[in-house]
Deep mutational scan, measured.
Amino acid sequence: NQASVVANQLIPIQTALTLVMMRSEVVTPVGIPAEDIPRLVSMQVNRAVPLGTTLMPDMVKGYA
């Protein structure tokens, strides 16, 4: 099973992502693949992302 990127904390809207905000976890449905974590650093979320939420491509500006 492929690991996805999951929020390690509440990430407020417009926040630039850092490594400490994300973790990898095998979840359903599958979100952004964990191997993309380095690419996500400094990208902004376009909505508030609660703790434990799987990051989906449409939540990160410039990802999809």
Rank of each mutant, 00 (worst) to 15 (best):
R47D: 08
A48M: 14
E25S: 10
V60F: 05
S24Y: 10
A3K: 09
A3Q: 08
S42L: 09
A34N: 06
Y63H: 04
Q9R: 14
Q14S: 14
T15V: 12
I13K: 11
P50D: 15
Y63V: 04
P57Q: 08
M43R: 08
V27T: 11
V49E: 02
P33I: 09
M56Y: 08
S42R: 09
P29G: 04
T18P: 02
A64W: 05
V45E: 02
I32H: 02
Q44W: 10
L17S: 00
A48T: 15
N8S: 10
D36L: 10
V49T: 05
T18I: 07
T28D: 15
I37S: 02
Q44V: 13
T54Y: 02
D58K: 07
L17H: 02
A34C: 10
V49H: 00
M56V: 08
N8V: 08
G62Q: 09
N8G: 08
E35K: 07
N46D: 10
Q9Y: 12
T54C: 05
R47S: 15
G31I: 02
D36G: 05
P57W: 07
I32V: 08
R47M: 11
R47T: 14
M43P: 00
A16L: 10
P33F: 08
I32G: 01
M22D: 03
M59H: 08
V20E: 10
L17C: 04
M21E: 04
V5G: 02
Y63C: 05
G52F: 04
L55C: 00
L51E: 14
G52I: 03
L19I: 11
M59C: 06
N8F: 04
Y63T: 03
M59G: 03
V30A: 09
K61H: 14
M21I: 04
I37Y: 02
V20A: 14
T53A: 12
E35R: 06
I13L: 14
S4Y: 03
S4C: 04
T15E: 07
R23C: 06
Q14H: 15
V45N: 01
I11L: 07
S4G: 04
A3G: 14
L19G: 06
M56F: 09
R47I: 11
A3S: 11
R39H: 10
P50I: 07
Y63I: 06
L19V: 11
L17E: 04
G62C: 12
L51N: 15
G62I: 04
A48G: 08
S4D: 00
V49W: 03
V5Y: 00
M22N: 00
E35L: 12
T15F: 05
A64E: 14
M22A: 00
M21K: 00
I11N: 01
Y63L: 07
V27S: 05
P12Q: 12
V30L: 12
A34K: 05
V49F: 03
M43T: 01
E25H: 07
L40P: 00
S24D: 06
R39Q: 08
S24L: 05
P50Y: 13
T53Y: 10
A7P: 01
V5F: 03
M21N: 08
S4K: 02
V27G: 01
M21W: 03
A7H: 02
V6Q: 03
E25D: 13
I11S: 02
E25K: 07
Q9P: 01
R23A: 07
S24F: 06
V30D: 08
P33E: 04
S42F: 09
E25G: 10
T18E: 10
V27M: 05
E35H: 12
M43C: 07
I37E: 01
K61Q: 15
R47L: 10
M43K: 09
S24W: 06
Q14Y: 15
V26Y: 10
Q9M: 14
N46I: 09
N8W: 04
M21D: 04
N46M: 13
D36P: 00
M59E: 00
A64Y: 05
M59T: 05
P50F: 07
G31H: 01
G52W: 04
I32L: 04
S42M: 15
L10R: 10
T54W: 03
T53R: 09
V30Q: 15
A16S: 14
A7C: 04
M22C: 04
I13T: 12
A16M: 12
R23E: 04
T54F: 03
V27A: 06
I13Q: 13
R23F: 04
A7Y: 02
A34V: 08
Y63P: 03
P12K: 08
A48P: 11
Q44I: 11
N46T: 14
R39G: 07
S42E: 10
A16H: 15
Q14T: 13
D36Y: 11
S24K: 13
V6W: 01
A34F: 06
P29S: 04
M21Y: 05
A7S: 11
P57T: 05
P12A: 09
M59W: 12
G52N: 12
V41L: 14
Q14E: 15
Q9V: 10
L55W: 02
V41S: 02
V60Q: 01
T18V: 06
A16K: 10
M22Q: 01
P29C: 06
I37A: 08
S42G: 14
V5W: 03
R47F: 08
Q14C: 13
Q9F: 14
V41P: 01
T28G: 06
L51G: 13
P38N: 11
T15N: 04
L10K: 13
V20F: 15
K61E: 11
I32A: 01
L10Y: 14
N46F: 08
T18N: 05
V20D: 14
Y63D: 03
